[in-house]
């Protein structure tokens, strides 16, 4: 049994993006605020704080969840992945590349949450159709893009994964995006 009084500070330990954090928190601190304020990981965005917009989505032990609908203290001992944990050694995650190529973001407010849901989605769906992708995205609000670029970016990663599996053949990108990034 664990009891933490309202104004007491709890010594909270968790693993975020592979790094151990130990911070003192009040029990009422939301996981989203813990990540932003205590861990300094402001990539996780906070839009509505009642579970509707999806901007705060992170992976808790591999599952995409709303970090605004969880208290930090409930994630004690958990492994969290935020958008900051996607790129490895300065190399963007395949989803991040595809989002950039397909213009799947404009202001970028919704993007971290959508990326985190997409990570779980691609891990649990090997060959998703457009409808399944849209169903996953229904948990996210984007006020800029009209979603088309986002769907295309996720599809592009699916194609690349399949290509990679089928043969280590030509590295040419499949033309899934309706718009491609002009060379700079």
């Amino acid at each position: 049994m664990i009891k933490v009084n309202r104004n007491e500070w709890f010594n909270l330990r968790m693993q975020v993006n592979g790094k151990r954090y130990e911070e003192r928190v009040e029990p009422r601190k939301l996981l989203s605020d813990f990540l932003r304020e205590d861990c300094g990981l402001t990539g996780t965005h906070v839009g509505c704080e009642h579970g509707v917009c999806g901007a705060c989505t992170v992976l808790v032990d591999g599952s995409a969840v709303r970090s605004c609908l969880m208290f930090a203290i409930q994630a004690e001992g958990a492994e969290i992945t935020t958008v900051e944990g996607l790129a490895q050694g300065g190399i963007p995650h395949p989803l991040q590349d595809a989002f950039s190529e397909c213009h799947a973001l404009q202001c970028g407010f919704c993007t971290p949450g959508i990326l985190m849901s997409s990570v779980e989605f691609l891990e649990t769906h090997s060959n998703p159709g457009t409808e399944e992708i849209k169903d996953m995205l229904s948990g996210h609000l984007c006020r800029c893009t009209g979603y088309k670029g986002i769907v295309e970016a996720v599809q592009r990663v699916v194609h690349r994964q399949k290509e990679g599996e089928e043969a280590s053949g030509s590295g040419d990108a499949v033309s899934i995006c309706s718009r491609t990034t002009p060379a700079v």
Binding site: M1, I2, K3, V4, N5, R6, N7, F10, E26, P27, R28, L30, D33, E49, F71, I73
Partner: peptide, 17 residues
């Protein structure tokens, strides 16, 4: 908005709860 303060209790089994 943020929730008001509360005491947090985490029972270890149903009986404790």
């Amino acid at each position: 908005m943020k929730p008001a303060a509360f005491d947090y209790l985490r029972p270890s089994n149903v009986e404790e709860a």
